[in-house]
Amino acid sequence: MELSSIPRLAPGCRLHPTEDVLLIPEGTLNLTGPTREILALLDGQKTVEQVVADLLRQYPDAPADVIQKDILDLLSRLQQRGVVRA
């Protein structure tokens, strides 16, 4: 996963409309912190860099380098788990 990657949810994975849960084939992943907001930004067009910028607009006081690293780590983990593609 790079800043220029364009991540999207894998087929068969979607956010529950109200609960903090990602519905995946044969199960669910509980979403903590801002994970839901980050995943909601994946539209198959934005790069990771644009997702970071979007999130920073929502949280202007947050440290940009930390947010960037956290988002890259999160999306890489979810990619390893097979629920995010890039």
Partner: peptide, 13 residues
């Protein structure tokens, strides 16, 4: 069937 499945946006196990 498998190549047919791959044409659709559906998860496949």
């Amino acid at each position: 069937l498998v190549p047919v499945l791959k044409k659709f946006h559906v998860a496949f196990t």
